[in-house]
Simulated assay, not measured.
Amino acid sequence: MAGDQVPWHWRVERAWTHASTQWSAWVLGAILLLSALGALVLAADHAMRTRLALDAQLAQAHAATPTRSADAPVEQPDFTQSLGPATPPAMVVQELQRACAQAGVVLASLQMQERAASAEQLGRSDFAITLRGAYPAIKQVIKQVVERFPSLAVQRMRMRRAQGPADIESSVTLSLWSAPFAASSPR
């Protein structure tokens, strides 16, 4: 190494300790700090203006929507309107007999209890039936009858094996619902 050549990192260290270099580094740091603060202020200002514009749009949207008065009642849809007119229980019994004959299922017993509709209560007819046959055939009978009458519901179902190896005895309770008098009359 030659005597007058000094490694570059020594020159930087010596220049750093020199007073004029330290002062210029402080000035450069202050300028960078002020620039960063300016950018932050501009970003906050842009966000504030955007929020004010969105608030104004929201206020216009609220002003454009009509308001309901507190005195006006809100009309709720009545599910009893979907029940339609009362289905005669005899139609359900006929459909049960037809579906059993078609599927090869024996309708062993049938009991029916009826509660008439009033102005305050739904009408209801309960059918307690006992079916004997193969499981898929019993399932098919119940499916056909419930699909035929939308206001008919399966309330309870119990199955057990019958005498034959493939036979099942099924006790089923079906409920046929009808609308109350006030709901069944058109408004």
Rank of each mutant, 00 (worst) to 15 (best):
R49F: 12
R49L: 14
R49Q: 14
R51G: 14
A53P: 04
A53N: 11
A53R: 06
D55F: 08
D55Y: 13
A56W: 06
Q57D: 09
A59L: 08
Q60G: 07
Q60D: 10
A61S: 04
A61H: 03
H62Q: 04
H62R: 10
A63E: 06
A63P: 06
A63C: 02
A64R: 09
A64W: 00
A64L: 00
T65L: 08
T65Y: 06
P66Q: 00
P66S: 06
T67E: 02
R68N: 10
S69F: 03
S69W: 02
S69M: 04
S69R: 09
S69Y: 00
D71K: 05
D71W: 11
A72G: 06
A72D: 03
A72E: 14
V74M: 04
V74I: 12
E75G: 08
P77Q: 10
P77L: 10
F79Q: 12
F79P: 11
F79N: 14
T80H: 07
S82R: 11
S82W: 13
T87I: 05
T87F: 06
P88M: 14
P88Q: 05
P88Y: 11
P89M: 03
A90V: 05
A90P: 10
M91N: 09
M91P: 04
V92N: 00
V92W: 01
V92F: 01
V93F: 07
E95S: 10
E95G: 07
E95L: 08
E95Y: 12
Q97Y: 12
R98I: 07
A99W: 00
C100F: 03
A101Y: 08
A101D: 06
A101T: 08
Q102A: 13
Q102I: 05
A103W: 00
A103T: 01
V106A: 12
V106S: 15
L107K: 00
L110R: 08
L110H: 04
L110Q: 10
Q111E: 14
Q111A: 09
M112C: 13
M112S: 14
M112I: 15
Q113W: 08
Q113V: 10
E114N: 15
R115P: 05
R115C: 11
R115K: 08
S118N: 07
A119R: 10
A119F: 10
E120A: 15
E120H: 06
L122T: 03
G123Q: 01
R124K: 09
S125L: 05
D126H: 03
D126F: 03
A128Q: 15
I129P: 02
I129Y: 01
T130Q: 11
A134R: 12
A134F: 08
A134W: 14
Y135C: 10
P136F: 00
P136H: 08
A137K: 08
I138K: 04
I138D: 03
K139L: 13
Q140D: 05
Q140Y: 05
Q140K: 01
Q140M: 02
